[in-house]
């Protein structure tokens, strides 16, 4: 006879999304969620070493031009040069150092260098649209790129994605992993985009919008946008990995 065991606590994802920063898995206006969203309650994990640890990446994982998407080919890409910089912070406001950030985006015409993207807009032979960097001791990062274009998708009639850059960030722990999208201020497509609108709290949506950053512009050369990223944190003191 085994002793009775208390089951893990269930968490209702839809209810959680009413008070949480993240969207619910099922956000029906974004059609792709309908068959890919879990329907059973989530189970709340105890904080074990599996949740409190995570991988670290060395600076040797970063190539010389990985942070500058305008220097990855022989010629210069077309479009408006931008500098995107910010800091990665934990929920206590502490810098997350040596965090790997990966970004990807469409080119200035709104086309991805991807075989599935059939948008009839031109590819740019001088633009791939992928970058990587590591945060510095202050949690800071900086990319140079081209402002991406908006592009159509087939979610609903005349659906267009607002211009955005995808960011993937590794925190200190595997459960701090964040993939998000950085948008640009004042985009008229925000009210019509079910992915942006999947975040229910308007203040949380604001946190996905970069701010124009005059101080970081390079005169006669590039505009600049600032985007700080706040990771969830594991709710515990970070564990120093062996």
């Amino acid at each position: 006879m085994s002793e009775p065991v208390q089951k893990l606590q269930s968490v209702d994802d839809d209810e959680r999304a009413t008070r949480d920063a993240d969207p619910a898995y099922l956000s029906p206006d974004y059609v792709g969620t309908r068959l890919r969203s879990p329907r059973r309650p989530l189970l709340l994990l105890p904080q074990t070493l599996s949740e409190l640890t995570g991988p670290a990446f060395g600076h040797d994982a970063i190539g010389e031009h990985d942070h500058d998407l305008t220097l990855q080919h022989d010629g210069e890409p077309l479009g408006e040069r931008i500098i995107v910089s910010g800091r990665v912070l934990d929920s206590e406001g502490r810098p997350v150092r040596n965090a790997l950030i990966e970004i990807w985006q469409a080119n200035a015409a709104g086309r991805y260098r991807h075989h599935v993207d059939q948008h009839p807009a031109p590819l740019d032979p001088n633009f791939t649209g992928a970058g990587r960097c590591m945060t510095d001791d202050d949690g800071g990062y900086r990319f140079v790129s081209i402002k991406p274009g908006a592009y159509p998708w087939k979610n609903h009639d005349n659906a267009w994605r607002p211009a955005h850059i995808h960011l993937s960030v590794f925190g200190r722990a595997f459960t701090e992993r964040l993939v998000t999208q950085m948008y640009f201020p004042g985009d008229p497509l925000f009210p019509y985009d079910p992915i942006f609108q999947s975040v229910r709290d308007p203040r949380a949506r604001e946190r996905m919008i970069s701010t124009f950053d005059l101080a970081s512009t390079r005169p006669e050369w590039a505009l600049a946008y600032r985007f700080d990223v706040v990771l969830g944190g594991s709710g515990a003191t970070p564990v120093e990995n062996a």
């Binding site: 920063a21 993240d22 969207p23 974004y30 792709g32 912070l89 934990d90 929920s91 206590e92 406001g93 990966e102 970004i103 990807w104 469409a106 991805y112 260098r113 991807h114 599935v116 993207d117 791939t128 649209g129 992928a130 970058g131 995808h166 993937s168 964040l178 993939v179 998000t180 999208q181 992915i195 942006f196 999947s198 975040v199 203040r203 949380a204 949506r205 946190r207 996905m208 700080d228 990223v229 706040v230 990771l231 969830g232």
Partner: peptide
């Protein structure tokens, strides 16, 4: 101090040239 998190968004369909290049 407790900062509100940055929300998650989908990876979308076009990530592999960036995330899976290595």
């Amino acid at each position: 101090m407790s900062l509100p998190r940055t929300p998650a968004q989908t990876v979308g369909p076009f990530f592999d040239f960036a995330l899976c290049a290595r």
